[in-house]
Design a protein around this nucleic acid. Structure first.
Lengths: 222, 222
DNA sequence: CCGTGTGAAATCGTTCACAGCC
DNA sequence: GGCTGTGAACGATTTCACACGG
């Protein structure tokens, strides 16, 4: 009965440009920083200035999701933080696993920034049997064989893939088969995944290439 | 004498959309992969398919920089790899320093993928005096005091910043003062830098947030 | 034929400018 | 007066569709 006739004043999330979601993360980060410094309220103009965006852009981005501002006042930081966390889906706790306990994997296992953002790494996996049954930064490392079981047991939803490039697609397939819904891929290869699994790729060498281009052409990127 | 009258058949690099440069990195990665598998030639359609782009997009992206294709044939992989490397500026060797020898910093010092892409990490720095004068994965760690001297000595052009958030802006200022031209910032803060220094930000928690949003809204981000 | 390069059309995202509210 | 929310204008990027080359 709750069909399409209800007045929509928010954009369907599927139609929100990826760039907007990216900026949402930046707004959130900045707002949390401002809150720690005791700021309670901020205008779109100020927030935009801090991040290098226009005031109109900040407002447009936010109104994709609802009405969070107070005319004459601006945005209340705490309120907006809650709203953005709800939009991003980080108002709840995500359980995350990490595959590939190499240099980068170990670094991510020890990274302190995830917990505060709503992500808890609950298990790690590695193909090397000598790494199985060890513990790194309080996180248990399992053999790949037990991935299925552990994923279901901990209801793991997201995976960070830090395996070597050559192993990445196979690892991703295993992860998908276990029912995970999203993957952050740090391996420098293009993965092919079924439609229903979300994917974000982070390629460290690629980031350096972007800087290389900017510097070689004396562009100030961003 | 070589003024603006020469017929331009390439877009001014300053006018090339950032997204295009990003895709260039992906084309390069894929082409190198194809070459390793013995493929010598590829069409815009095939290359696009592998990466999830349209054939027209691939061609448009490439023609920003010149004429690399061969009608009826496609693109010769080796030729295109050279061209893209030249465009990205990675046909030469960049010297890179890393600041902040924590978990993530150590992982990047050991990352094997940079060398093949044209980046050599020649020095690391840390504020902790106990880390100075050690060597990690063959890379010498220096105290921050010597940054100026080492940067000039090795002609370091790029820096990867892996210091704690609270230290990032100050560290960036030091790096800029030493004359570095580009920074990849892994600290979860917005840096403010002079116009002439290029900046790319990589925030690991932010990447997870993007996945969180996609999964929470059942979008296939890609 | 196959496949590139490219104007023209369509789509998408950003900025403008102002009505309305505190 | 300050500031949001928003249609309309603008600018940028992507897709289309086809002329031309091997």
């Amino acid at each position: 009965m709750n069909s399409g006739k209800r007045k929509l004043d928010q954009t369907d999330p599927k139609d929100v440009p990826k760039a907007v979601v990216n900026r949402l993360s930046l707004y959130l980060r900045e707002l949390q920083h401002l809150l720690r410094n005791g700021k309670t309220t901020i205008s779109s103009n100020q927030l935009g200035r801090l991040l290098g965006f226009s005031d109109a852009q900040v407002r447009k981005d936010l109104t994709c999701f609802g009405h969070f501002g107070h005319p004459g006042i601006g945005y209340r930081c705490e309120e907006l933080v809650s709203a953005i966390r709800r939009i991003l889906g980080t108002d709840r706790l995500w359980t995350v696993a990490l595959l590939g306990v190499g240099n980068l994997g170990r670094a991510l296992l020890g990274y302190k920034g995830f917990a505060a953002k709503g992500f808890r790494i609950v298990a790690a996996f590695d193909a090397d049997p000598r790494k199985a049954n060890t513990t790194i930064d309080g996180i248990r490392v399992y053999s790949l064989d037990s991935l299925d079981e552990i994923v279901r047991q901990h209801q793991i939803q997201l995976v960070m893939l830090t395996v070597p490039a050559a192993a990445a697609q196979a690892a991703a397939d295993v992860v998908v088969a276990a029912g995970v819904s999203g993957i952050v891929n740090f391996a420098p290869v293009t993965l092919s995944l079924p439609e229903h699994v979300s994917l974000v790729g982070v390629d460290l060498a690629t980031e350096l290439e972007q800087i290389s281009f900017s510097v070689a052409n004396r562009i100030n990127s961003r």
